[in-house]
Design a protein around this nucleic acid. Structure first.
Lengths: 238, 238
DNA sequence: ATTACTATTTCCCGAGTAA
DNA sequence: TTTACTCGGGAAATAGTAA
């Protein structure tokens, strides 16, 4: 896929072929082949870009040498810096929704020492015994929930206690209301749908924030440096 | 300066405003202002890009939400990767020219213990007493020589010995014929012009390569990771 | 072979405007 | 207010061709 127009394609081609420290010997028809355009267009573009100061042509005998000027290189560099800001900054994913009450299962499960200890060790805080249920509001939040479930990187193992089997779960660290240390916990088997998340935190969130059912809240997850970005994209739902 | 066409501008704008994890509420006229185009064009572009699968529109009531699709984000990402390859790879600068004989000053100066010891310590090899003079051939090489003189990062101090003053110089590490450890030495006061470089090396280059006057040779300087690239651009001669 | 002109076509932009 | 249509002018691309 290609989103560049012909001028940019030409500048990019020159840069990719090192035409900023050396002049490139290339004919307009060869250039046209590379850019998938006509010889006439390649010629015209070259003339235009030279007029605009992006490239420099040096005619030596019957061969024409082409190189980027500082201006041409800087144009590409500006674009590079803009794109770098997008792709190298930490990616913030926000889920927003409304608080609702469960049936107290949160308290029950978190209180089980097998889960409690794992959370303490792996998530890194002593969880308040209970979960805050959030019903997600927007399509975006639901899509992001699905993405985050794939990216959740803290496993909580299941276990067997007597006859009962307790399922496994996954957590991902998050900031409740953009500030409070917390984590989203995705239970493998849950009776909630994809439009619900459960939050654990080292404090009683309902108390700290004076929350009642129906209150709007948000949770932010910061994915450090989008170097893992390719995976993030692939994990996204369309 | 701006080299992007309107489609790219739109994708870039959306990405810069985080429209890959959240939908953006923006009217076509607001978009038009941002992109410095007409409302009609913004509208048309949005429709076009949606057809092409780069953006997604969600109409909720009377507000339209816009977000990048995976395809849209990947398009920008592809471009980013191509530009990164250009700007983050080590920059290779090649100077080519013909060997010529000086008047033995190279031998004289390098043999002076004050220069000899500085080279040994700072450049990192024991110099063969003498320099190889190269007359640069192309405009590119001459421009690159001027650039490299600015970038030369190993200072060689001048000194006073009795009545005579010996000038300072600067060196930059290089690869002779793309392989042999060497350095270009730029004397502050030289009777040679900007079309000449002098090479020092831990070996007798004329001997190792069987060089005679007039032979074509080249010297390569590798500028590590072009993070310093902005400086490199600024140092360039137009 | 090459580059780059002129003529023609195709594409894109924005004004006007409907819904 | 919105969005997005039609349409006219102009820019950009290609064909043909000269030098």
């Amino acid at each position: 896929m290609q989103i560049l127009n012909s001028k940019e394609k030409l500048l990019l081609f020159l840069a990719q072929n090192g035409a900023y420290t050396k002049s490139l010997a290339i004919s307009t028809s060869a250039l046209a082949q590379q850019l998938r355009t006509s010889q006439q267009s390649a010629s015209r573009l070259l003339i235009l870009l030279e007029k605009e100061g992006y490239v420099e042509k040096i005619i030596i005998g019957k061969t024409t040498l082409v190189r980027l000027t500082n201006r041409g290189l800087e144009a590409l560099r500006d674009l590079y810096i803009q794109l770098r800001e997008i792709f190298e900054k930490p990616m913030e994913i926000v889920l927003e929704g409304r608080v609702f009450s469960g049936l107290g299962e949160g308290f029950y499960y978190i209180s089980l020492p097998q889960y409690f200890e794992q959370i303490k060790e792996r998530v890194g805080f002593t969880p308040y015994p209970g979960t805050l249920n959030i019903q997600l509001l927007s399509k975006d939040s639901i899509e992001n929930r699905i993405l985050l479930e794939k990216l959740a990187d803290i496993p909580i193992d299941g276990f067997v206690d007597g006859q009962r089997t307790y399922g496994k779960a996954k957590c991902i660290k998050a900031l409740f209301m953009g500030e409070q240390e917390a984590a989203i916990i995705f239970a493998e088997r849950t009776h909630y749908g994809k439009d619900v998340i459960e939050i654990i935190a080292p404090v009683y969130l309902r108390g700290k924030y004076g929350l009642r059912d129906g209150d709007k809240v948000f949770v932010k997850v910061i994915l450090e440096s989008s170097k893992q970005d390719k995976n993030i994209i692939e994990a996204r739902v369309e």
